[in-house]
Design a protein around this nucleic acid. Structure first.
Lengths: 340, 340
DNA sequence: CAGAGTGATGGGAGCGCTCCCATACGCTGT
DNA sequence: ACAGCGTATGGGAGCGCTCCCATCACTCTG
């Protein structure tokens, strides 16, 4: 191990050490073009010997590429770091990018002020593309970024009629699976603790629930539906409301696992046995679904896969900027545990 | 708003639009040196008009600075995203860096493979400095990075006799505060659910506990001490062990809030009333400390402040590479709620 | 009024790389 | 043996910026 010299070797030095020209050395490093075996080997051993590492700034300056991609999560640190979903996506994105030799830059931007900086950052030719996660209905960010000519892929649609490139979970179908399962279990009075009406996930999962009822020939009943905000507390209070309105309910579909956990707790307190008296199904297959009492039947989605797919679409879009790739809807599947 | 031209304006263009030379324009942008008011204003309005943004790659190429700093968290995505502590640090770091005009690059590196990439990344002149968080005892990463001449600041010491620049919470003193408080409340048989013995936080908090007992003239008793792994489950099982060994205990100091939450739960199940029969104190002042039953008395630390301090030390170290700044120990304070 | 200083200014040099063109080299075919 | 072609090769140009030096226009002093 030679001590690193204070100044890193340059391409020029590598080339002369290998007895070739700068051009040839560059060709070897970039793998491309025709280079004789002799030259290639000479350059490669010179690189190894000198411990040469290309200067990224110099390369970026001429190629106009940065080999970095931003993952923007439009939430506060608290939410991002509290939600296992994000962990999965980040991991998926991280893995896929590193396979492609790209660098991940993670940006959290919730406040408006940060949003400004963000715009700036994304424009300043720091990244070759952007992945956006958890946008809110009214967010014009993707539009602005796209205008500046930067490829963008969204994770989760911001609106139903989303244009642009996105990856989303097939929430409607997932919810449908859950309801079908409950019907199959012989349940007839299937309640729902839905998500917020101003979020697409909330709406599409609810649509799936309604579709499931319809398919089974069951009537939907407003008394059987409450809305929560995806928090455990809202699941608890929602469940209490449902029990008071319709004590005869025999199943509950919850738009996420956290609310389902709350529902389970209230049901237990109310003396209803799960699943004997009431079946409960959640959505997400979050880690906590395995540690509820009883373990929760839930619709599985894979945030990690979402991350990977987002990267795949982004890469495609970066390669062919003119023909943006088709959006992807990810499959879900039902994981049956003991709550149904 | 003029439509962005396909190619961004260069300094040269700004200069000629302002009727000055390239050098003067550069001086204005970098705020430095003597520039006449007339020139400054001309350049500034040209910048505004053309929507000029400096090309970072070009600047980096010549200055050898990147204006970016890496925050390396040596944990899996799951742990990072499950621990509110990290959220706080990330926020603190983010705020402090953005105030300094530096870019934050967040790197998660737990696997060895990723570690290799990381080395590579940090060496490749991508960042001007590195902040390392949550290192494990045997990690040689800081050493390797420092060797390559990159300023490094650690968050939390990896070993007691840590050399180098670090910011840490004064865990020993914090634990001491907790025990003093319990003593003050008249408690005499003060148990401890300690953290893992192979982590510095675990050890130093335990040292503080022992020091507190000593100061109060109480004997330490191994039967009053169990070790957990900072998880809620380990707090529960630890509490059960303690109750079986020493049913007469009248207080428990837990090395973090999560274990304290577990202890509270077990105590309730065992019919002990908190704080009448047993006082409980945690450590961290995590959000959950406010929602336990009863709300948890705990030692407050500020991850956000830790993040800020880390940045401050790094900046100092970057400015004066020869005289590394003194490590910082952050204060803690006791937050008294209803569990004691 | 000349000489010395002071401060703003313009622009050359060069950071390390990729791109590309001109060149040299090695073949083949006649 | 030589034209003709294809292919590996060397190196100039230039990416956009900062650094620095020479220059110029003034002002101040003796």
């Amino acid at each position: 191990m030679t001590r690193q010299p204070r100044t890193r070797p340059t391409l020029e030095e590598v080339a002369s050490a290998a007895g070739v020209g700068r051009g040839t050395a560059s060709r070897v490093i970039n793998g491309s073009a025709k280079v004789s075996d002799r030259a290639r080997q000479a350059v490669e051993s010179a690189i190894a010997e000198l411990g040469y590492v290309p200067n990224r700034a110099a390369r970026t300056l001429v190629t106009q590429r940065t080999d970095a991609v931003a993952l923007v999560i439009a939430e506060s640190e608290e939410r991002v770091f509290g939600e296992p979903f994000f962990a999965g996506v980040v991991r998926g994105v991280g893995i896929a990018l590193s396979e492609a030799g790209l660098q991940l830059v993670l940006l959290l931007a919730h406040t408006a002020q940060r949003h400004g900086r963000l715009d700036d950052y994304l424009t300043r030719q720091h990244v070759d593309g952007a992945l956006l996660l958890s946008l809110h209905d009214d967010d014009a960010l993707p539009e602005r970024i796209r205008e500046r000519g930067l490829p963008v892929v969204l994770g989760g649609r911001a609106t139903e009629d989303q244009q642009g490139v996105y990856v989303d979970v097939d929430n409607a179908l997932g919810a449908r699976l859950a309801v079908d399962h409950l019907v199959h279990r012989g349940r007839r009075r299937i309640a729902a603790i839905a998500g917020p009406a101003d979020m697409v996930v909330g709406r599409t999962r609810h649509d799936g629930y309604l579709a499931g009822l319809r398919a089974a020939g069951l009537e939907s009943d407003d008394a059987l539906v409450v809305r929560g905000d995806f928090s455990q507390a809202s699941g608890e209070s929602g469940m209490r409301v449902l029990l008071s309105r319709r004590p005869d309910l025999d199943a509950v579909f919850c738009a996420n696992d956290l609310m389902a956990a709350g529902a389970l707790r209230v049901l237990r307190e109310a003396g209803r046995e799960v699943p004997r008296d009431v079946s409960v199904v959640g959505f997400d297959d979050a880690p906590l679904a395995q540690s509820t009492h009883p373990p929760l039947t839930t619709v599985h989605q894979s945030p990690e896969q979402m991350g990977r797919e987002m990267v795949a679409l982004l890469l495609e879009n970066m390669r062919h900027p003119d023909e943006p790739p088709q959006p992807r809807l990810l499959e879900t599947r039902l994981v049956v545990r003991e709550s149904s």
